[in-house]
Design a binder for these strands. Structure first.
Lengths: 136, 136
DNA sequence: CGGGATCCTACTCGATACTG
DNA sequence: CAGTATCGAGTAGGATCCCG
């Protein structure tokens, strides 16, 4: 590596940082949001973090989710290898869902995000209320 | 608090956990996704983590974002108190954006998520390819 | 019970053109 | 430069009905 490459530019944000987020984090964040950035994915993953649940149990634990969206989101998560789907051939049928090892690795960052939300959402709502009061 | 409340139920997931995610984390995750779960918010926040940027700089650093979406998302973030907007009364006008202290607290969990994405997206894409190959 | 199929609505987002 | 305004396509997501 030439020594010129080691010199840190004094201006931190003027012209060299076009690759700052785009190649690595930028694409990663976008891909991530494309997969678990929807309305129910993180909720399902968080709900499954304590163990296996069957379809109707999941639906009960996540109020407001429709059968359709639960089915769709679970299918996407299974397709991405984050959730495993096990069908027990019985009558009535029983289908159980649980996190895969890969899915389990998402728990920590997801809970970090949830913790942030719990801690800072009051401030956000206050800021929003103040903003709306000021702007009419 | 009565002593019966301290007894941990032995079955981890059968009947008592209706409040497991819904009251705290569940609502938090939903509110969070409502605010920064869109296409550009996390990208903007990550881009601003290194310092102040003006509108056109932000647009250059986030390829693919339209003027409209950049304006809209910045307005939402400003409304929520995550981003501050400073107008310098000059000609041509200069408007600078930076993270507020509250916004800065989001950097760590957001980067944790981005790091997860960088680490696990290849596995996800592989799982998806395998799933699609098996299912046609 | 665990979905699949269908219809329908609302909203997101992008493209384009215009403004101060 | 930093927006605003308007239009239109695409899609996420809810409601409903049906099936194995």
């Amino acid at each position: 590596m030439p020594d010129t490459a080691e010199i840190e530019p004094p201006t931190p944000l003027t012209g060299y940082e076009d690759r700052c987020l785009q190649t690595d984090e930028g694409r990663a964040i976008r891909d991530l949001m494309d997969r678990v950035g929807d309305k129910w994915s993180l909720l399902i993953i968080s709900t499954l973090r304590a163990g296996t649940l069957r379809f109707s149990e999941l639906q009960r634990h996540i109020p407001g989710v429709s059968q359709r969206m639960l089915t769709l989101t679970l299918k996407h998560l299974a397709r991405d290898g984050l959730v495993s789907r096990t069908v027990h051939p019985e009558v009535p049928p029983r289908v159980e869902y649980s996190l895969t090892p890969t899915g389990r690795t998402l728990i920590d960052p997801a809970e970090a995000l949830a913790a942030w939300a719990v801690a800072h959402l009051p401030a956000i709502k206050a800021a929003r209320a103040e903003f709306d009061a000021a702007a009419g």
